[in-house]
Design a protein around this nucleic acid. Structure first.
Lengths: 347, 347
DNA sequence: CTGAAAGCGCTTACAG
DNA sequence: CTGAAAGCGCTTACAG
């Protein structure tokens, strides 16, 4: 005999009473409850997770699905801990365990998710890095499981998402550059299939238009999260009849290659080419001159996602009556010295 | 009626047969199995996790407990993704799900772990960042759950661990510096309570002794994972009657502050002070001159940990007959320009 | 090769 | 306030 039965026998009460005492059911004599609690503590007893889930129909756990790829292996993760910290704090306060579910890039992310969903392994899900078209969202919508995504998608509708305020960042960056006199502004965009690339690019176009600037496909540079695209970007920007005078970066790390190439050509960031980065990444924080960029709270992002999820879950919906949440976490500009007024050279 | 019962009724067979077909039990007519598999696929059926675990007594999942602190929020995590990728690949190949369990620094890590253990939420555990004295190890030893730690500890014995080869790194670093003529070698050590700090410090002493060099407490600098200890270190090393000529860093990021301070004093890394870093971190990869440091495969670390765990688990012990594994993942030197022969100045 | 039935360890109406 | 019992959705000897 084991588990709750052993505890019950030991105490001379029924398993029902033990269960009630442990679960905070009010219909238990206070003295009995103390006796049970004490014994459980002493014997290190905790209800078996599987049995509990089966009987209750809930797991008291939430999954956070992340994807493991080469790129994220060296950088995105830096994004990860802060976000998880925010989520965990909120969920723990409501008795929910956060289980981070890492999906290898080599396995199909749809199948991966489906397994956890159809097995009822978690009560809710948070998805990272949504795609423009993302079948996972359709899957989650058609099943009855509460979920929230980190990032928007064109798939599905009427679901909760939290995202970065790409639009706000781009508006601030473009306006700042325009004020400094820039009329030809280049941009880098991520070359992967996550939706944020498309959003960033669209915001770029929208904000050029707002300021009456022409969009030029030649000034859009797809990049990966690595520093060595600097040569082609700098040369591509400057060696043309109508060079750009500024560039907005999606991946901040690109600044390293740009700085390097500029130095080779005897040029200076902020004087000969204005640079505004997006997110303040670890690897460029010490670059000189400092990159003008945007800062945000990763914890807040995680917190917002967790709250939005709790608003979907039956157990916590009353405490979070916000319904569907679709919101963007703001970023604030951190001025550096990598941007400045248009430099009047030869032309 | 739902779950397996519904599937069984639909197919006109018993739940036992469905279960067998789905679980690869050989005692099933091949045609029957196909029929079941097809229907399960079509209806999106997968066995309920809780019911399955309860019936089988195993969860088919492994927990990787990590801790979330301020420090790791900005850096250690960079360590994280690669390791998880390695673990996940190995575990998935054996039908095990990897659940990353993030523990907030504000909650007691012992209690956190205990809950997962006593509830039987996972079949095995991997612990990160062991302490010199680590009650979690005693807990795991006294329960029957298989586990592996990332990092050694003085607690417990006869358990499997995987760690970095701090000794090898230190031996290589000290020997390299000694060959370059250095006799006064400083070191930075982490100021937290993880065991690797103690190991690193001990390896430092051992290797000084091996080369007949005196140990001097004044040359040991506790640091945190941030760049701004450079001033006190550089000044502390150089402004003394018997200055050190070289320093070995635990946290590579410390190099940034050291470089800065050296520059302020008109000195050069590699010429006026030789610097060898430990692990090649993202944030200093682009420092000039490049820091001489050590490289390792995070994936290999994760892979080794997962394999060591499989060797403890009943289901996989036959495929991994290695027994207790206690091994150190090697790192290889990546020469930079931050170290060089002793510079003969004035004295 | 298949099915009826017991059992995994809990929770929770139901009855008292 | 407490207990006996049914039930959660599976798996697995056991019998055929």
């Amino acid at each position: 005999m084991r588990g709750i039965a052993r505890l019950a026998r030991e105490l001379g009460v029924s398993t029902a009473t033990v269960s009630r005492a442990l679960n905070g059911n009010p219909n238990v004599n206070e003295a009995t409850r103390q006796k049970v609690l004490e014994a459980a503590q002493r014997l290190g007893y905790a209800a078996n997770q599987a049995a509990r889930s089966l009987a209750q129909g809930v797991t008291h756990s939430v999954g956070f699905m992340i994807e493991l790829d080469q790129e994220s292996t060296t950088s995105t993760d830096y994004f990860f801990m802060g976000v998880v910290e925010g989520m965990q704090a909120v969920l723990a306060a409501h008795g929910l365990d956060l289980l981070v579910l890492p999906c290898a890039k080599s396995q199909d992310n749809f199948t991966f998710l489906q397994r956890f969903v159809s097995r009822g392994a978690v009560d809710g899900l948070i998805l990272a890095e949504t795609r423009r078209i993302d079948r996972r969202i359709d899957l989650l919508k058609s099943s009855d499981i509460p979920f929230v995504t980190l990032g928007r998608s064109d798939s599905g509708s009427g679901y909760s998402w939290i995202d970065l305020d790409f639009e706000g960042v781009m508006a601030t960056a473009v306006e700042r550059l325009v004020r400094l006199g820039h009329r030809r502004i280049a941009v880098t965009v991520p070359s992967n299939d996550a939706n944020y690339g498309a959003i960033f690019a669209q915001a770029y176009r929208d904000n050029l238009a707002r300021h009456g600037l022409d969009f030029d496909e030649a000034l859009v540079f797809p990049t990966r999260r690595r520093e060595d695209d600097g040569d082609s970007i700098v040369d591509g920007i400057l060696d043309r009849p109508d060079p750009a005078t500024a560039i907005i970066l999606f991946y901040e790390v690109t600044a390293i290659g740009i700085y390097r190439r500029l130095a080779e050509r005897g040029l200076k960031p902020g004087r000969d080419l204005s640079i505004i980065g997006f997110r303040r990444e670890e690897s460029v924080r010490f670059l000189m001159p400092q990159v003008t960029c945007f800062q945000m709270s990763l914890q807040d992002l995680g917190t917002a996602a967790a709250r939005a999820l709790l608003a979907q879950m039956p157990m916590t919906v009353r405490a979070f009556p916000s319904g569907i949440v679709q919101s963007r976490v703001p970023l604030s500009l951190v001025p550096g010295e990598s941007d400045g007024p248009v430099c009047l050279r030869e032309g």
